[in-house]
Simulated scan of single mutants.
Amino acid sequence: MNLSLQQITRGCQLAWLGSVLTFKNRHLYKHSYVRTFWYLVGASVILYLVTYIILLIPLKILQFFLYLFSSDYNDHDFLENTNSWLINHVFNLPFLGLLFIRYIYPETLDSLFIESLRNIDFVYIKNHKEEDEDELRPPYASALERYDYGFNHWQETKQYLIRTGNQLKKVIAVYFLSLLPFVGGFVYPIASAFALVNSLGYVPAIIVGILMSITPGTKSFAIIFLETLYSSRALMRELLEPYFGRIQYDSETKRKWFREREGILFGFSIVFYPLIRLPLVGMLFYGVAQAATALVLVKTTDPPPPPSQLSDTKLDHHYRDPREKKRE
């Protein structure tokens, strides 16, 4: 079971400790973070407008025709509420737009991540200055900076749009299937169980689906649950891009890496996810989350070896299982 309570709690703790380290980092606050914050403000405002327009224009046209041909004001209020609900909870477009910021200018968020790693190394050495140098772990920031940050704007943007498109297609399909008579009430419980199979196993996932099916009024809860689960995974994928942009390996190894740390990553992301979704100030917390992600990396992986020594065998050794007890 990857989504254990212990791992989720550990992820929440790392979110808090990483945020504390971020705000204590004077260099980050005076230079990198301030610059990144204003960059995120400008970019996110533009992207929020774009993502709203993509869905709002057809819905507003529909609302206009309804206003012309219907005299029932309850229909108008219902459609207005539906517009807001679809954008913010079903399609989640503002959040996806905020994640797209990385593909416009990734260097800013990457520098924020690396600077946070340097600060973690500094605090680690300061806290262990009385110990033998041979017993200390190597500095993480300098080890990671040996790797080139290979970011192909067009290719990465294309992959992001494909992933987002596939996610939206699934969300749209599940949403409209849930509107069908008789079987619609079972769609979200089944989707929830399916989403949890890899994390909890078949039996616990099926139990969750059954409980959602027989409990009245669980549709809204299931929608929020699925939205949070998939969005938190998407969030962690983007926050860890400065790492994966340097350490390249095949998709199967990458899935294994995420699967072994799923509970910790989920606990970390659910702390920041509701904060990032706040209007206007969400980009502030996105920057904090990017910096705090460095602590998750340090606590769940060893510093990478020099690029010339990185082989498949050493790759497996480098990505240690986070459940192994390690001296902090």
Results as ranks from 00 to 15, higher is better:
residue 115 E to I: 09
residue 120 I to T: 04
residue 216 P to S: 08
residue 31 H to S: 14
residue 274 P to K: 00
residue 32 S to Y: 08
residue 287 G to E: 00
residue 194 F to Q: 11
residue 46 I to Q: 04
residue 183 V to C: 03
residue 304 P to E: 04
residue 102 R to H: 10
residue 149 Y to K: 08
residue 305 P to Y: 03
residue 200 L to I: 05
residue 263 G to E: 03
residue 143 A to M: 09
residue 89 H to D: 03
residue 46 I to L: 07
residue 184 G to E: 02
residue 317 H to S: 15
residue 52 Y to N: 15
residue 247 I to D: 00
residue 311 S to E: 12
residue 4 S to G: 11
residue 84 S to T: 15
residue 149 Y to M: 13
residue 205 A to S: 07
residue 140 Y to D: 03
residue 113 F to C: 08
residue 191 A to Q: 01
residue 4 S to V: 12
residue 153 H to V: 14
residue 31 H to N: 14
residue 309 Q to D: 13
residue 30 K to C: 14
residue 18 G to V: 02
residue 233 R to N: 11
residue 69 F to A: 03
residue 177 L to W: 02
residue 3 L to F: 14
residue 291 A to W: 07
residue 22 T to L: 06
residue 263 G to H: 02
residue 216 P to G: 07
residue 87 I to Y: 03
residue 220 S to T: 10
residue 116 S to M: 08
residue 309 Q to F: 09
residue 68 L to E: 08
residue 50 V to E: 04
residue 87 I to M: 00
residue 234 A to L: 11
residue 218 T to M: 02
residue 121 D to Y: 04
residue 315 L to Y: 01
residue 235 L to T: 09
residue 225 F to G: 00
residue 222 A to Y: 00
residue 228 T to H: 00
residue 148 D to C: 14
residue 89 H to L: 01
residue 175 Y to G: 07
residue 293 T to V: 06
residue 133 E to D: 11
residue 172 I to E: 01
residue 253 T to S: 11
residue 261 R to H: 05
residue 101 I to P: 03
residue 119 N to F: 15
residue 251 S to T: 13
residue 15 A to V: 04
residue 206 I to N: 00
residue 61 I to S: 05
residue 133 E to H: 06
residue 182 F to Y: 14
residue 78 F to L: 08
residue 286 Y to K: 10
residue 256 K to C: 06
residue 311 S to K: 10
residue 30 K to R: 15
residue 70 S to G: 03
residue 284 L to R: 03
residue 15 A to E: 01
residue 247 I to M: 07
residue 159 Q to W: 05
residue 296 V to E: 00
residue 27 H to Q: 12
residue 231 S to V: 05
residue 56 L to R: 09
residue 80 E to C: 11
residue 16 W to V: 12
residue 7 Q to V: 08
residue 51 T to I: 13
residue 97 G to A: 10
residue 228 T to C: 00
residue 54 I to Q: 02
residue 155 Q to N: 12
residue 76 H to K: 11
residue 1 M to H: 10
residue 158 K to P: 00
residue 228 T to I: 01
residue 243 Y to V: 15
residue 211 L to K: 02
residue 92 N to E: 08
residue 250 D to G: 12
residue 220 S to W: 01
residue 241 E to V: 15
residue 144 L to E: 01
residue 144 L to S: 04
residue 320 R to L: 04
residue 294 A to F: 07
residue 152 N to P: 13
